[in-house]
Design a protein around this nucleic acid. Sequence first.
DNA 1: TTGAAAGCGATACCAC
DNA 2: GTGGTATCGCTTTCAA
Lengths: 350, 350
Amino acid sequence: MNKKRRETPARMSDIARLAGVSASTVSRALAGSPLVAAAKREEIRRLARERGYVINSTARNLRLQRTQAISVAIPLGHETSQPLTDPFFTEMLGHLADCITQRGYGMFLQKVVPPMDDWLLRLIGSHKSDGIVVIGQSTEHAALEEAAARYKPLVVWGGHLPRQSYCTVGTDNVAGARAAVEHLIALGRRRIVFLGDPAVPEVGLRYEGYRLAHERAARQGIQPHIVPAHLTADTAYEAMRAFIGSAGSFDAVFGATDVIALSAVRAITAAGMSVPRDVAVAGYDDISFAAHANPPLTTVRQDLQRGARMLIDLLFRRMAGEDAPSATMPAELILRESTGRIDVLSVNRP
Amino acid sequence: MNKKRRETPARMSDIARLAGVSASTVSRALAGSPLVAAAKREEIRRLARERGYVINSTARNLRLQRTQAISVAIPLGHETSQPLTDPFFTEMLGHLADCITQRGYGMFLQKVVPPMDDWLLRLIGSHKSDGIVVIGQSTEHAALEEAAARYKPLVVWGGHLPRQSYCTVGTDNVAGARAAVEHLIALGRRRIVFLGDPAVPEVGLRYEGYRLAHERAARQGIQPHIVPAHLTADTAYEAMRAFIGSAGSFDAVFGATDVIALSAVRAITAAGMSVPRDVAVAGYDDISFAAHANPPLTTVRQDLQRGARMLIDLLFRRMAGEDAPSATMPAELILRESTGRIDVLSVNRP
DNA sequence: TTGAAAGCGATACCAC
DNA sequence: GTGGTATCGCTTTCAA
């Protein structure tokens, strides 16, 4: 059997030979160029389709100096554990995948774990993608600043910091957190623990909102109290557990994220206290699980679908050369039972 | 000011010029080749680092004929709606990202929506990645068969069908579903609705398990009954609602996935019935939300972390030329309150 | 040990 | 309209 097996052609020149034309013509035909005669164009396309030929995107990308792909990077500098299972990230990822796919681009997912030296500059320099979305500033504010100075097509989901030069999309963390904490105070809570790590920019802004709410309520003798906690469920649970064991009294917890707040609920319940009766708990994000938790979690809602759309919209404008600015979306306080029944609330108010 | 601004060098030849050597030498130095003198090697590397030079991966990939990337494709042929928010997918994605990153590969995410002509052959032909993971067979069994005949580095999360030639990883859908349904029968349920679309291979296998359980119980006068439902929460809710409105009696629902089962719970509750008192509900997947739903959902657990590890392990073996076989993992029935309280269960049993 | 040159597979300019 | 050729930026053989 030396009859050659019909392989799928690997190169454009193979198709060219089969069609009796040059590679240039095949390239033009496949690109739909009006330069090549209509009849010949259709024949070449048919041939390519029949033989299962597909343009090699690596070669094409090299030649065209673009990749039709967006990198989505998730820095996990703050995390002690590795796995990418945080529902906030996975939900955001889903929405981003939708937006990016819709524009005909590919999505290149990049988990960034310590040691994180130069990851962003390397990602940029590698030319793997035409633009970069970073989800969460994590510990990487400095790296983002440095990169943004020279690389435009970069957008970040996260907090908008003063004098920051990179482009962010996010909710109004200060206002959102403040509304949540003011709600707790209005409910009569007097010792509200902030659970989270303010070194992460978004969390820092939420802490600022927490602080502002306390400042306004200072005359009522309410003092802020922070319990440091990382962003993973396990570490947050542990931090809360340790705090319960060692500390004085408290009657409310504001978790920097829903994952943290829900971990706090677990720790509080495990210690024999009741949420919301003994301790009211509120979070931030409104991950889809928050509404179905037990008890349902009061939280500050971020519209991730809208956020993803904005990120990608700004990114494409930046890729087109425009100097698209940061955007802040309103945050919405969602009242649920973890801070007390809503109908009871009005009764309790002075 | 005609003093040239020090730009980050774009090409290897720039570094070569700066170092006073040829590009070949730079390439070798950066690759850590022992061929280049140690001192010179270090100097070149230092220079590259200082100037922020990064190897252009597109060019490198073209030359080396590999991409250091894995494509993860999610076919959504069965879905009526678009967004990639299904928790099963996003959880799986997170685990895959972990495994792929760990091996030093990039992850290329590909959502596949109708019309889906030739998507897999095109993905393969484009040479975007060195291997492909497909999550869920959806409607694409034929496409997978066709592709697998010529392309080895392909693995699929899904059901293992008879005489199938592509490599799958998944749980034992028949046994898992059967265990769940037998549990419902043992609880005394006599009219158990199967909610799902058996045209999707995994769902078909689960239906087979459902059918087998019924076959064994046929003498008790228990008849199977299927209600077609797509995989999204909204369509499943609607299907269940319509069925409740139009149909005769039923006292249990087996949902083909947790998303479907939880939608059924919503529809049943909205119709004024109680879960599990009036209707017992079980699902499949054990998505992380299942344990926290109200009531907590009895379901068949798939260990996605282990599944992702297996997928990637098999994929890399196939990329290395090995003909790695399919793998089936055991499924585990998790009893929770949506089928009745477990302590009550033993009491109720004959 | 180093450099010159070929080649990965496509696109686009420039002739014809 | 079509084909030849240079080029994108890198790696690797071959020769020195």
